[in-house]
Amino acid sequence: MLEARLEQANLFKKVVDAIKDLVQDCNFDCNDSGIALQAMDNSHVALVSMMLRSESFAPFRCDRNIALGINLTSLTKVLKCAQSDDILTLKAEDAPDVVELVFESAESDRISEYSIKLMDIDQEHLGIPETDYGATISMPAAEFQRICRDLIALSESVSIECSKEGVKFACQGDIGSGAVTLRQHTNVDKPEMNVEINMSEPVSLTFSLKYLVNFCKASGLSNQVRLCLSNEVPLLVEYSLANNSHLRFYLAPKIGD
């Protein structure tokens, strides 16, 4: 059986909120290392990969592998019933028909119990190859969100160029063009404002802004976001969570002229 108690229901709420517009029906794969999710959007352009490690829960118990097939719209409806500082416990039997969600108030004696009917989801599991990226950029998540939201007003696509000059986000549209360049930057007082660029080769790639704006819904989960780029391979956008957990998005590039 699965029993996973999360001190902050809000964390799970935010994760589901960040991915629900990208993917609809997902398997939450539970085993003794934690709860993982991997799903592609309908167009097979973007992939979501979430890992909530067992250390993120207290206690965490999962005796055998359980796949919880959940519709995220249904899950969102139920998670709305949790107050943001509630404690969340996920429960399921070994061959479950339902997943149970229990919300407990840390301050009062309220206990709310909900269940969601599970679905059989036949999902392909993709092998994501280990990649030595040509460029890795860590930057404030809010800054990345702002750049994506600003540039989508002008164009559908953004080119991300990383060179020893820094990283340049540029777009061209019908009304004109826009570009934002960031250089490596260390803020001693506010390390969450740091911009760190590690580059082994210059990289230049083009991506659809619609997807990037979507990924940025995860901005509330982490102060910093990490972008990993190599020419001609999918972009990795990573939000690190506490206890080595993470929410990652992959996006296929646009290529050719």
């Binding site: 167009s43 352009v45 993709l126 190859p129 391979v233 992959y250 296929a252 646009k254 290529i255 050719g256």
Partner: peptide, 14 residues
Amino acid sequence: PKHQQSLDSYFCTR
């Protein structure tokens, strides 16, 4: 214009 690639060619089915 550039064409949107799919992830299928990058990630293999396990």
